[in-house]
Structures are given as structure tokens and as C-alpha cells.
Design a protein around this nucleic acid. Sequence first.
DNA 1: GTTCTCACA
DNA 2: TGTGAGAA
Length: 111
Amino acid sequence: MNPNEPLDNALLDFDLLSKLVVGIGEVSDITGVPQRQIRYWEEKGIIQSFKEGEGTTRKYDYLSIKKILLVKELLDDGFTLDAAAKKVEERMRIINEVFKKLADRSEPANE
DNA sequence: GTTCTCACA
DNA sequence: TGTGAGAA
């Protein structure tokens, strides 16, 4: 973990992460958070998922997974869901900005 | 495999 | 706040 973050590596990660879409089962396996808990948090509104097309199963993208991971850490730090939700929202704001920039770089209109 | 609701601690 | 079980 160097203090400087090479954008080249970030671009590779972004391409991979942006395509990462999994169900609640995968998310629970990756994050280590039980499905009930994930649904529970979503029920509280601290995280949100999306249905793909007319499907019923929840789909989680990297941002959602990141949120779940963040909430998990926050809760472990002694925060409540409400407190964690606030911090998560602020964090997501920054992450969204970075992703937007990454997306812009990842889609060069021309060589 | 997933979803939901009811109930309990 | 988080989990159990049953049912679809």
C-alpha cells in the first residue's frame, strides 16, 4: 500500500468492479454478513439493492458491497446502524465522485 | 437458489 | 439489533 495510488491500477480495478454484480448469497459470502442481516440493513434503508429486469432476487453492485463492508466495520467500531448510515452516506459521496472520474477515464472518446 | 412475514430475545 | 422458522 503505497501512499500514492497509481491510476493505472485503479482503472483495472474499476473495469472489474463495475462489472461485479452478484446476488445476496455471494455478497454474504464475500462480506461475511448473513443474508438476513443484509436484508435487515436494506430494510432500514442504510443500503439499497436493485432488481435486474423482472427478476426478484436482489442484485448488489460493488458500491452496495462496499457499503455493506463499510457498515460492518462501522458497527464493529461501536457505531449504531443510524450512526453508521450517516458515515456510509458521506463515504459513498466521495466514492461516487472517484468512480465518476474513473468512468470518464475508462471511456476515452478517442485515442 | 431466492423471497416474504411473524415472532422472539 | 439481529436471528429463527415456515411457506411460496
